[in-house]
């Protein structure tokens, strides 16, 4: 029995943990921007952590349930109601057939993850239900959900009243600190530009979506002089088109850094100065436009320690709910 979409929100889409294996054809991994929040929501309702849920950005949807289900919403701080009665975030609750889940105004963060017992059961494409609108893959007909959609769910019930302890509800600070491992084409920058990138405070630009987050406000980055290699293009920020890493930071023309996210383009002709470490990718998914951000330089061992810490956080949630 499906969910009925009364109001879709701004851009709400079905997402799971993505479709690895096709980036060499330009099809990105996709999946939840904030995987920590999706995993936590799935744990709360008793799903596999990789089950598909709904990702809503800035504005929540309004959903009528046509069967009983257990639901949990994690991620951004956004008030929510079942038939007008407030329910708690990061906590599982029951919704009865005929009831409606709706949301108030966003307070902090950017994206909520709605997990429903049994998971969203739209047909997978290339092994994943994640919606990739550019390539018309996954989700509902390869697009974000729309008013009137009926969305199949796996069914079954979880346990209401389970909650993620407050200290394990991870989100970015303000200003947000995003850790960066310098690398890739870092050597294109002058020493002063490299220093300035980490010293300056940037803010999230309005152009921030699943493909990439743009930042502005820092100093213009200067490049080391060189004769441009054949095939690269004339601008000093150009390279011979190569692959892009997830989380890699390109700075076209040296002006506004763009961090590629889950729906990244797989390659292109702009230099990249390094990448956001894997542990901090989730945090980007929770940044609103105009949020101040500091990029923090780390080395590989620090990146791996942060990765282990994030993993340990998820394990603590598992343990708390066991």
């Amino acid at each position: 029995m499906p969910l009925k979409i009364i109001k879709p929100g701004l851009s709400t889409s079905v997402q799971d943990l993505g479709r690895p294996g096709y980036f060499h054809l330009g099809i990105p991994i996709g999946g939840a921007m904030d995987r920590y929040a999706l995993r936590a929501a799935n744990m709360l309702v008793g799903n596999d952590e990789g089950a598909a849920g709904l990702e809503a950005v800035f504005m929540g949807p309004e959903i009528e349930f046509t069967e009983d289900a257990t639901v949990a919403v994690c991620g951004a701080d956004m008030p929510m109601m079942v038939d007008g009665e407030a329910v708690e975030p990061w906590t599982s609750f029951d919704v009865k057939s005929g009831q409606t889940l709706s949301f108030g105004f966003l307070k902090t963060g950017a994206r909520i993850y709605i997990a429903v017992s049994g998971g969203i059961a739209t047909p997978p494409d290339l092994g994943s239900r994640s919606t990739y609108p550019i390539g018309s893959l996954g989700g509902v007909e390869g697009r974000p959900i729309a008013e009137g959609d009926v969305i199949p769910i796996g069914g079954g019930a979880g346990k209401a009243g389970r909650s993620v302890p407050a200290e394990l509800r991870r989100g970015p600070g303000n200003p947000a600190q995003l850790r960066v491992l310098p690398g890739l084409y870092w050597n294109r920058l002058t020493e002063a530009a490299g220093k300035g990138f980490f010293e300056d405070t940037w803010t999230v630009a309005p152009e921030a979506d699943r493909m990439g987050y743009r930042f502005r406000g820092g100093r213009h980055l200067e490049f080391v002089d060189r004769e441009q290699p054949f095939g690269a293009g004339a601008d000093p920020s150009n390279i011979v088109d190569g692959c892009y890493s997830y989380g890699s930071i390109q700075v076209p023309g040296g002006t506004e850094p763009i961090v590629l996210h889950r729906d990244a383009v797989s390659g292109g002709g702009y230099f990249t100065l390094g990448a956001i470490i894997s542990a901090d990718m989730d945090l980007i998914g929770q940044l609103q436009p105009n949020t101040p951000v500091n990029f923090v330089k780390v080395d590989m061992e620090q990146s791996l320690a942060a990765r282990a810490e994030r993993k340990a956080g998820l394990q603590k949630i598992r343990d708390a709910l066991a």
Partner: peptide
Amino acid sequence: YTFGGDEHIYVEMDEEMS
């Protein structure tokens, strides 16, 4: 050879296209 974050290795064979 260079790392792209903690999950990628990027190998540039040559700066110019051939």
